[in-house]
Computed example of a mutant assay.
Amino acid sequence: MPLPLAPAAAFALRAGTVALAAYAVRRSIRKGRTDQRAEDALDDTDEGIAVHSARDRDQKNAAARFRRVFRWGDRGLEIDAAAIGRIRLRRV
């Protein structure tokens, strides 16, 4: 009995395309570094969301922090998520 190659070839083509795209994305991601100044700024961020604009600059700044502890019996999980963002719009 002959083996139908068309479905296997279509699957191999799709899987190869996905693998190639994943490899390309992986190669384009730079290796990061930990900046202690940024870590300290995130640790100093107040809980909640804050937005403000500086009078001497044409930019909007935003900061957000979420800290919660979830407990299940005698074990728990602490979630501490913080973000700082800046949007600067300039006419050139």
Rank of each mutant, 00 (worst) to 15 (best):
T45L: 13
R88A: 05
A38V: 11
A10L: 06
R57D: 09
L77M: 13
L77S: 07
A15K: 10
R71C: 06
T17G: 14
N61Q: 12
A6Y: 00
R26C: 01
G73L: 05
D74S: 15
F66C: 07
R14I: 09
A10Q: 10
R27P: 00
G73R: 14
A19G: 12
F11P: 00
L13T: 14
V18Q: 01
V69T: 09
R67L: 11
F70M: 06
R65M: 08
S28H: 03
R68A: 10
A64R: 00
T45H: 01
S53G: 13
V18C: 02
A6H: 02
A63Q: 14
P4W: 07
R14L: 13
Q59H: 06
V69I: 04
I84D: 02
R68T: 13
A62C: 09
I29S: 04
A15M: 07
A10F: 01
D58P: 09
G85E: 14
G76D: 09
L42E: 07
F70E: 13
I79M: 12
D40H: 08
I87A: 15
T34R: 12
S53W: 03
L42F: 11
R33M: 04
R75V: 08
G73P: 08
A50T: 11
V18Y: 01
W72G: 02
A82P: 00
L89K: 14
R26L: 01
D56G: 02
A64G: 11
A21C: 06
E47K: 04
G85H: 08
D44M: 07
W72C: 05
A38C: 08
I87P: 02
Q59R: 15
A82R: 14
A8W: 11
R55N: 10
R67E: 07
I79E: 07
A9V: 09
T45I: 10
T34Y: 06
R27M: 04
A81G: 02
I87E: 12
E78D: 07
V51L: 13
A50D: 09
R90Q: 13
V51G: 01
E78S: 12
I79G: 02
R55V: 04
G73I: 03
R67V: 14
T17C: 07
R75A: 11
L3Y: 10
H52I: 00
D43P: 00
Y23L: 14
R55G: 13
T34A: 11
T45G: 03
D46G: 12
A82V: 03
A21G: 03
A62V: 15
Q36F: 00
N61F: 08
P2L: 07
S28N: 05
D44H: 10
A41S: 12
A83K: 04
D44R: 14
R67T: 10
S28M: 04
R67F: 07
A10C: 01
A83S: 15
A63P: 01
A50W: 02
G85D: 13
A83R: 06
D80L: 08
G73F: 06
V18N: 00
R37E: 13
D43V: 03
L89G: 05
R71F: 05
I79L: 15
T17R: 11
A82E: 03
G48K: 02
G48D: 01
R75N: 10
R86P: 00
T45Q: 14
R67K: 11
R26A: 10
A63T: 11
G76M: 03
A8H: 14
A62N: 00
P2S: 03
P4M: 07
